[in-house]
Amino acid sequence: MNSTTLSPRPVHEPVADAVTRVNLRPRYEGSNICTWIGFKHVNYLVEEAVLDHLRQRGLAPGGLYETYGLCVDIVDIDSRITHAFHIDDVAMAEVRPLPGDKLAFAVEISVDGVPPVKAVTAKVRVELRLDPHGSAAEPVPDELATYAVARLGTAPVRVDRPAAAGVTASDDVLAQLTAGRNAYAWKWRIPYFYCHFTERMQMSGYLRQMEEVVDLFLADRGVSIKTLLDEQDWIPVVPHSRITLLDEARMEEELYTVFTVESVFKRLTYTSRMDCYVLRDGVLVPTATGRITHGYAVIENRRDWSLVTFDDRLAGALEGAPAAPRTRR
């Protein structure tokens, strides 16, 4: 089936309870340290599995957009990684609709092998957003109109909304967003290549934002990725991440991203929160929120690593103390 056209199946069939399976490979871009695949590209595999599920069930994203003016938007992705992916691995993905919501899916991905090893479990929610640009070639069928929304973020939000919407344009926004918090914030212009369907920042853009703000935060605390690699052969690993869209962020708006350390657990993992806003009419509007959990591992050889406990320097930096300089052992 051509992925840019609708299947000839009846349009009500795609939202039937059905399981789909697909084999995928991680992208080469995601192999940044040795041959391991980072959490962002693992989430890309989850996203691709869901899109393939929609295609198999007759909801090809290109066809929905071109025929009915419906945009397939992933608005929530919650992933747990239990086994590392390497660049040459084959990912075997299984997708099934969740009960009670035909556009919410459970995804399980295994690494091909004998036997296969379960590597990822995820929950994903999709919305069909009506395109405001131009008119569609055909009216939206009743079966799909049930799921269509005029704006992302109108569905019930399953996480707490950030409490910073009262900051105005006259304030020092970044200072206000981090005041009294163990946090780091930055302002960034949304480029077109983080967007889709002509105007909106898409989920993969927020995954890239989450990856980058972690990198900036660690560098700001004196424990950058390269510093710990050079001095201790340590790398961060991610067992869990989640991002939920709360509203729409538009191309070329300025996005304010706040990264807040919420907890450090027994010097084994730390969990942080990412909150994203755009400034409209002098008020910060929350557009996305998420959480990510990190541990650290020491590189043993080109293929293997093992988890380590945080030393005083890393623990102190995560808890808000400035990191002391250090030389390689």
Rank of each mutant, 00 (worst) to 15 (best):
R9D: 12
R9N: 02
P10T: 02
P10F: 05
P10W: 04
P10E: 14
V11T: 11
V11Q: 11
V11E: 11
V11Y: 11
V11M: 15
H12G: 00
E13N: 04
P14Q: 05
P14H: 07
P14L: 12
P14K: 04
P14A: 12
V15R: 08
V15K: 04
A16E: 15
A16S: 15
D17N: 10
D17P: 00
A18G: 06
A18T: 05
V19C: 09
V19N: 03
T20Q: 09
T20P: 00
T20M: 07
T20K: 01
V22T: 14
V22M: 10
N23W: 08
N23Y: 05
N23R: 15
L24A: 06
R25L: 08
R25F: 07
R25N: 11
R25P: 00
P26F: 08
P26D: 11
R27F: 11
R27W: 10
R27V: 03
Y28F: 12
Y28R: 07
Y28E: 11
E29W: 09
S31M: 12
N32T: 09
N32S: 08
I33T: 12
I33S: 06
T35Q: 15
T35I: 03
T35A: 15
T35S: 15
W36K: 02
I37Q: 05
I37N: 03
G38Q: 09
F39I: 02
F39W: 09
K40V: 15
K40L: 12
K40F: 03
H41I: 01
H41W: 12
V42G: 04
V42L: 11
V42F: 01
N43A: 14
N43C: 15
Y44R: 06
Y44N: 13
L45N: 08
L45I: 03
L45S: 09
E47S: 14
E48G: 00
E48I: 00
E48R: 11
E48M: 11
A49Q: 13
V50Q: 09
V50G: 07
L51P: 00
D52M: 11
D52S: 10
D52N: 15
H53I: 01
R55Y: 05
R55V: 06
R55L: 08
Q56Y: 11
Q56I: 01
R57T: 14
R57C: 10
R57F: 06
G58Y: 13
G58E: 12
L59K: 05
A60W: 04
A60G: 12
A60E: 10
P61Q: 08
G62L: 13
G62E: 13
G63M: 03
G63A: 06
L64C: 03
L64N: 03
L64P: 01
Y65I: 00
E66Y: 09
T67M: 06
Y68L: 04
G69H: 05
G69K: 03
G69I: 02
G69M: 06
L70Y: 06
C71E: 15
C71V: 03
